[in-house]
Nucleic acid binder design. Structure first.
Ligand code: MN
Ligand code: MN
Ligand code: MN
Ligand code: MN
Lengths: 233, 233
DNA sequence: TTCCATGTTTAGCCTTAACTAATAATATTG
DNA sequence: CAATATTATTAGTTAAGGCTAAACATGGAA
């Protein structure tokens, strides 16, 4: 029996691959070798090697030169890791004074060391939160997760009022920059103008002193918003 | 540069070896290969291999066939791991409802994944505790630790009143048994009788209903007590 | 003082998970 | 449609950290 087939003995590498593959699969529809390599900062041949092992263990299906897809078992494992990660991030910010730009790194390590027992205790202490500090939905214990219904700030029409709901947790520099702009989760603003040719977007915060800020197009693409009035009750 | 010489990139194995060697050194005066192997549940040749690596990295000194001794760097590292372990145990019991029989296993994994930053935040949230849930002193941030001044229950004279101060954290079965006897940290009792030839010891709890319990000699040896009146201010 | 039990190390092997260099498959483009 | 660029895989190496079997030290008993 290979080491991978043990019940809860997956290595840090293994868990991070599964999590990354899940994320790529949901975002891009498929997980290609080079995308996995990029996300995990390893060389492509390392991915090929790990894909071989994961595939042999029944955690994913691999079509050579085409990409990989998680099996049911693989997906369930990925969801458990994702739940651990997001509960940890929420706990660290809510209970231990971490800010949203520093939790990811810590959770990235802890997610492989905590027991499910500890995660459930943390979840309980938090009142079973639905979202992590970056707005990402926390998978439930049984492995289901909501698909966040957000619109990129880059696609919010001029004149609309929107609320910031989801940001990426991966780049802490970026998160510090967002905070410095006043772009925290839940903040409400109006889109004042959008320059053409993927140009910058100007917003005005709803709350006094109603400051204006300019956001680059690429950054705006990565910010998930809900347009006021589009709310699903 | 070997992987071991990186600033904070010590592996789980490495940290557990250093911690174990520190504990054996303080308890037995020296750390022998077989003792390390026993404590870590690995084969003696695995210890020889790791000792080679640790010695090459300057974390310990090895005299072949004689044993190992931590260097200053090795000892400081061991103390940091021990601090992380004990803060974690305290946090889990104080803040997340863990009982003293289940924290050790969790801490044994987490101690290698948490950052010093997280540990200091936990310590802060706990009010910088001096002892872990088993009564073991928590090393300070600068790497000093108190030597617990306790007497084995097996050596407390009949008629004396004593307080339970220190138990081993390694055996959770044993910890559950102690709890079932009412033997928690801080509990006060009188030694009623001691059978000769390493025989059982009978104690009577000071608090009503003043139950009597019988404790085997070996178990009594592992219980650290302070005799009432011997207290150091 | 030689022999033997015990404990330790060496030799040789395995798995995981990374790497680089070379090769093979697929996609793009002239 | 052939040449080329991109992407993926294979081949071969390395290091950590485990294992078993065999060789080696050491200290006590015959
Ligand atoms: Mn994160
Ligand atoms: Mn991770
Ligand atoms: Mn412990
Ligand atoms: Mn450990």
């Amino acid at each position: 029996m290979s080491a991978l087939s043990r019940q809860r003995g997956l290595s840090r590498s293994t868990e991070d691959y599964l999590k990354t593959i899940y994320e790529l699969e949901t975002r891009d529809g498929a997980a290609q070798t080079s995308a996995i390599a990029d996300a995990l900062a390893v060389a492509p041949p390392s991915v090929s090697g790990m894909v071989k092992r994961l595939s042999d263990s029944g955690l994913l299906a691999h079509v050579p030169y085409r990409g990989v897809q998680l099996t049911q078992v693989g997906r369930r494992t990925a969801m458990r890791v994702l739940r651990r990660h997001r509960i940890l991030e929420k706990y660290l910010t809510a209970k231990l004074g971490y800010d949203w730009d520093s939790v990811h790194e810590e959770a990235e390590r802890l997610e492989h060391a905590v027991s499910d027992e500890l995660i459930e205790r943390m979840a309980m202490a938090l009142g079973n939160p639905e979202f992590d500090p970056h707005g990402a939905p926390i998978p439930t214990k049984d492995g289901t997760v909501a698909v966040p219904e957000v619109t990129s700030l880059s696609e919010v029409p001029v004149g609309e009022t929107a609320e910031l709901r989801l940001v990426s947790d991966k780049d802490s520099e970026l998160l510090r920059y967002l905070r410095s702009l006043g772009l925290r989760l839940g903040v409400v603003f109006e889109v004042v103008s959008r320059q053409p040719f993927r140009g910058p977007i100007t917003i005005r915060f709803a709350a006094p002193p109603q400051d204006e800020e300019v956001v680059g197009y690429e950054l705006a693409q990565s910010l998930g918003c809900v347009i006021r009035g589009d709310e699903v009750g």
